[in-house]
Each structure stands twice: as structure tokens, then as C-alpha cells.
Computed example of a mutant assay.
Amino acid sequence: MKLLVYSAKEFEIPFLNQANNNRHKITYLKDALDSETAIKAANFNAVSIFSGDDANGIVLEKLWDLGVKYIVIRSTGFNNIQIKPAYQLGFKIANAPNYSSHAIAEHATGLLLALNRKLILADKQVHQSNFLLDDLMGFNLHGKTVGIIGTGSIGSVMAKIMHGFGCKIIAHDLKPNIDLVELCNVKYTSFEEVCRQADIITLHIPLSYENHQLISEKQFSLMKKNVILINTSRGAIIEHKSLIQALEQQLIAGYGADVYEKEKGIFFRDHSKNGIKDGQLNRLLSFSNVLLTPHQGFVTVEALESIANITIQNLNEFEENKTCQNEIGYETLIL
């Protein structure tokens, strides 16, 4: 099968080549998929896309007319694909679920620790020969209440990590994980109660129509003023206008994220020469109690290896007309 990989990053190419083992003919393209770059998929059977690619209805029609029949996603989320048009056209689509729950949960933990213990500020001060401790106070995680929104594969790992720190864990999920109740003494409660009770709130849910801007002005008003909010899911789960207002009004103590609601055209690129023109993002980055990383949670050796293996496995199963275990099925596609 001929595969065109959009948004190909240099560091992931060796992993994909190794997983492919010369079976499929792969072409790598640095450009993201959009209405202009879709034409580059001519003469390809399949395309592989990442979270920053735009597979809207118009793009999908172009890909289909060019002969593309398969889309393999190098991520768990697929909110950047208009699913119903894709199904109606006849595409077969598969994602890479559970590629490394530990990578994302550990990154969320790293954001929490760095933000709480002022590690970025401390490093900056020390490099400037300033060894004062006045602005570096944090708090112990031990004994604090951690609220986990979403206890799927990543949220479950996060619960176990926080349990290891000696935290009290409360959670909200439509399908409670009974194992976590037994292993980590997780208490399931309503979303509103998580907002009210938690000292730390960490998000581990996919972006969907139902939870778009799930956290906005109302939820920030419920939170403790010393709460730290961590988001390694998707940026649009949080309404950023309300987030900035909460930071300005000191309604929360800090925000750590690996995602942003308007990543397209900003993330995965170097803007160091000309800067960024997104005023909202610039304002967000102006807060000393905000720590933002460039969607790097998946960038571990283990995660990249897993993503590559799953992506090629999905392609193999499509080619062989086998049941693809990661195919996004009918129930999801018609939503």
C-alpha cells in the first residue's frame, strides 16, 4: 500500500520505518493536511494524519476523489476529522488508542510538580546567580485532594501515580473504574463536586461535542482559589477566555498544560524569529503561574515506538481485509 504521512516529524520517521519493515511504500510530508495540501495525496491509497491536521468535509472529499481510501491516525483523539462525512464517503479510519498512557500521565505529573515547586523560576534564578528562596514556595502533594476528570487508560495511570504520592483522589467519569476504587481508594463524585473539593484538578478526557469548553466561568467560580489545573487532553475542553479571567482575578493558583485550543498553525513550528500573533496565547503566557509545553506528552521513545507499531498494524489489517481492532466503528462514526 502507498501511504502518505502528513505532519511528519523527523524524530518519528525512524520509528515508522522500523515498524513498516519495507512492507508499505511510505512518503513523508512535513506539511499538515488541509484543503491545499490534500492534492499531494494523489496516487496514494492511504494517508496518516496527526492531531494538527484538518480533515474536514471538503478535505475528505478531495482525498476520496484522489483515490485515498484509508486514514490511519497517529494519535488517540480524532476530533480533527469530520467523522460522519468520512463514513458517508466510505473511508476506513483507525486511530492509535492507548499508545502510552504512562507517557501522558507522567508528563501531567511533571507539569504539576514543576508548576507547584516553581522549578522553572528556580532554574532561571540560579542561572542568573540568584539563590534566594523567597518566591519558590510550593506545597506537599501528600495529603492533598486530587480531582481526576476521566479515568480511562491515562486517567487511571494518573490516579495510581497520585496515590503513590499519598493523595486523596476523587474522580468523575461516566463509567467509574471499580479497580481504582479498590486499588487507590478513588471516590467517584459529580463534576461539580470535583471542582469544589479538589486542590489539584487534572483532565484526561477526549474532546467531544459534549465536553467542548467543559470548564468555563461557572466551573472556575466553584474551584478553590489555591487549585492547580492540569490539562494534557485537548485545549478546547477549557474556555480560554474564562481561564485568563480566572488567572487575572487569582481564582486559581496555577495552570499547567500540554495543549492549547488554537494549536493549528502555532504548535509544532518554530516562531522564535517572528513571534506569535495570537493575542490570547500571548496573554496566557504572560502569567508566571502558567506552564505550557508544546504538545510533547507523547514524545518518549516508548510512546513513539508504540504509535508507529499501531499505525502500521492498522494499515496491515486494512490491506489484508482483516478486522482492524482500532477501526473507528459505526457507532462512533454516525455521531
Rank of each mutant, 00 (worst) to 15 (best):
D54A: 10
A103H: 07
F11D: 13
Y99C: 04
G256V: 07
L207R: 00
A19V: 01
L291A: 02
R74H: 05
I334D: 02
Q313R: 14
G164K: 04
G297I: 05
V146C: 13
S190M: 06
N45W: 08
I58H: 14
L113I: 15
I307R: 03
I310H: 00
I230R: 01
L174H: 07
D31Q: 15
Q82F: 09
T323C: 10
Q250T: 08
E239I: 04
I334K: 13
Q325G: 08
N321A: 14
E239H: 13
I307N: 09
A171G: 08
C184A: 14
K124A: 13
Q249V: 08
G164R: 07
L333M: 15
N326G: 11
I201K: 00
P206I: 04
N226D: 14
A114S: 12
N130V: 15
D31W: 01
L281W: 07
V299L: 11
L60H: 09
E319A: 15
G275E: 04
I205R: 05
L203E: 00
A303D: 07
N177P: 09
M162S: 06
P97I: 03
R23E: 12
A122L: 13
A41P: 03
D31P: 03
I104A: 11
P176T: 08
L291Q: 02
N43A: 12
H142R: 15
I104N: 01
M162P: 01
A42I: 14
E305C: 12
N226S: 13
N130H: 14
Y209A: 13
V227F: 03
L112K: 01
L214A: 11
Q280Y: 06
